[in-house]
């Protein structure tokens, strides 16, 4: 479904991604784990067209994304929940969700909205509230819900568990498996390797701009190096 080949990204003189190759198959949850600064977010940002790679290709369902602008990438059927949630705090919860559905036909809106509300009942209760007044966990749910409002084939989630209480983290990961079971493919970037590997079908480990390990979630959970470096054993 998504294939990234030999991706090189530079920030000024810094070589942030040094030839990334990864694949996301339809129906899977694929995760990208690694430490701070390994290049996880940069990979997602390149897919979304927010960062221009110097070299390499990103193909989504037969379309080359590297030549497209961000809004065009999204229109291919990709939803993004960015790092740090980035909800529009000056708009209401409902307005945030409406923006997520910007390019959807209006007659689909109600169905999509009900779907998102069924995943996150809390958002329905707070739909008239300004998004800036929500708690961190609720904002994360809104960011996820907003990304799903376009009914994407693939969602890119950037650190959805960052800064959340353990119980809320669990809730977020449960929702990720739920939407995946309902047919959405997920590319998940996480520092919380344990939680991410548990839900992922396939995983990549990123270190200073290179993929150093890959395998199914189960394999990596048992891998000696992963356990040492990321699971704190």
């Amino acid at each position: 479904m998504l294939e990234v080949k030999n991706l090189h990204v530079y920030y000024g003189g810094i070589h942030a991604l040094k030839g990334i190759d990864l694949r996301v198959k339809e129906g899977q949850i694929v995760t990208l784990i690694g430490a701070n600064g390994a290049g996880k977010s940069t990979t997602l940002r390149s897919i979304a067209g927010l960062v221009r790679p110097k070299e390499g290709s990103i193909v989504f369902q037969g379309t080359e994304l590297t030549a497209l602008r961000t809004h065009q990438v999204i229109q291919q059927g990709i939803g993004v929940a960015p790092e740090g949630r980035k909800v529009f705090g000056n708009l209401t919860v409902l307005e945030n969700l409406e923006l997520g559905a910007y390019n959807r036909p209006p007659q689909e809106f109600q169905t999509d909205l009900e779907w998102v509300f069924s995943l996150f009942p809390r958002l329905e209760e707070r739909s008239k509230q300004l998004a800036g007044t929500l708690s961190g966990g609720e904002q994360q749910m809104l960011a996820l819900g907003r990304a799903l409002m376009s009914h994407p084939k693939l969602v890119l989630l950037d650190e959805p568990s960052l800064g959340l209480a353990p119980l809320v983290v669990e809730e977020v990961f449960e929702t990720i498996t739920t939407i995946n079971r309902q047919g959405t493919t997920v590319l998940l970037v996480e520092q919380n390797a344990m939680a991410a590997l548990h839900v992922a079908h396939y995983a990549y480990v990123l270190e200073t701009g290179r993929i150093t390990l890959e395998g199914t979630g189960k394999e990596l959970l048992q891998d000696e190096r992963v356990r040492k470096a990321y699971l704190g054993e």
């Binding site: 960015p82 980035k86 390019n103």
Partner: peptide
């Protein structure tokens, strides 16, 4: 709505598929 969103955060507005 898109204008108000862009006044808050242009990059995230792009991520909504908005030109």
């Amino acid at each position: 709505k898109a204008m108000r969103a862009a006044s808050k955060d242009i990059e995230t507005t792009r991520l909504m598929g908005i030109n």
